[in-house]
Design a binder for these strands. Sequence first.
DNA 1: CCGGGTGAATTGGTCATACCAAATTGGTAG
DNA 2: CTACCAATTTGGTATGACCAATTCACCCGG
Lengths: 250, 250
Amino acid sequence: MTNSPGRQSGPSEPSAIPDERASLIGQLLSFVAHRRLEPGDRLPSERELAERFAVGRGAVREALAVLETLRIIERRPNSGIYLRPVEKQGSIEAIVLQAELGIPLTEAEVREVVELRRILEMQAMRLAAERRHVEDIAHLDEILDATDRAIAAGENPADQDAAFHLAMVEATGNHVFLRVVNAFYLMSRNRRRVYFADGTRAPLSQAQHRAMRDAVAAGDPDRAEAAMGGHLRGVESYWMELLERRARGD
Amino acid sequence: MTNSPGRQSGPSEPSAIPDERASLIGQLLSFVAHRRLEPGDRLPSERELAERFAVGRGAVREALAVLETLRIIERRPNSGIYLRPVEKQGSIEAIVLQAELGIPLTEAEVREVVELRRILEMQAMRLAAERRHVEDIAHLDEILDATDRAIAAGENPADQDAAFHLAMVEATGNHVFLRVVNAFYLMSRNRRRVYFADGTRAPLSQAQHRAMRDAVAAGDPDRAEAAMGGHLRGVESYWMELLERRARGD
DNA sequence: CCGGGTGAATTGGTCATACCAAATTGGTAG
DNA sequence: CTACCAATTTGGTATGACCAATTCACCCGG
């Protein structure tokens, strides 16, 4: 069942700015970017990379193992390390990792993420409304209350916002769905905090969340989807403004 | 031998049954599964794991780095390695990795993957039909022809099938979308080969692919979406039959 | 000048050892 | 019982060495 006390290895913040070890991955990433390496190109050998970044070979291999599982590179035994067409075959987790490393998304990536997020969350609302269970609604209410408390306390409700959206996806009963959407929220975590730094946004967002909760609780897929659509419109306009600002040179 | 130029770093097969190194990851995964470890539980130390699996500590650390980026475990410096709630927070790539290791998806995962794949590909068809570019259609035709040749040669057109679906997603112009769908095709690669081992399926699939191509070329989102819907119905029924067969004990 | 073959250098894969700093643990003194 | 301290454990990291397969360069023969 649900362990009430026990450990509290809280699901709070998994990682915002990872430890220093991650910096090696970031250095490798910026290395390929700075060198203008294209898919198929070969990277320096492990020994050379170790020397270049002043770290041990083991650390390099660890970073390379990560980049390999993210389909950014390919390691050919006794041959070398080669760059893969990351744009097409790279893992979605590669973007999550970049975001955690503080590397901002490109304009194209932002537009694409926004578009896909809308598709995913709109459909998630339909499924959630069709399959709503009492415990799911209770979970949503719980998060809603926690958000109220956070706002009242003057805290940044960014994490509660993410928790609500993820709980909505969880209400679809589709855990694979949850994994995918979770990636999107991880990659925009920092930006979300900035978004809610403007205190006027939280109350509006909260009201829309409540409308979404009610639509799901009522088992109305159309209304639920529409509510999410309107909610996302606000977030998306923020992103578009941000892109314009960035295009003008901040 | 016969390849004249350098290498043909072709986009052929990236990895089906990875090398032996991957087996350590598989061993670690089966270890946590066999030990019935729950989220929050601590794994044995790196030194202990190295001894248990008769490998060096470096190899263990490399595997752990991968499991960490996939959000399966969490490494706390000077403390230990802890299991994370993989079901909820795990990366979608974790499922891809498991599939590559030969670990079959659970029944729930199959149903969830099928459901999400339908959502993604249906919406992808709409976007593809709205934005179709000449080069996208040309790319589709290219793959269609290659599929014809493969079928005529008696080869298994599993990879061409995946290429077609991925090209369709690519036609949306959304590379993030492509990354997500790509994960789904990677995790079902082996099963797809079995699916097309029945020679009668390829021609029907090919016909449906052509209908989808035409609908997209005509810029008709509704027809394109409907064509994909019908196409997926066939694939999904195969999966459902497979689950029933598995439930009865093969 | 070209083609092929051979040996050396390179490279990823792996293991063993050692050291560090922080976290953990255990026991002891107050 | 609490507070504090020392030994142990643990992840993080660097170094060195060896293996096998791949590459590459050089040389020889045609």
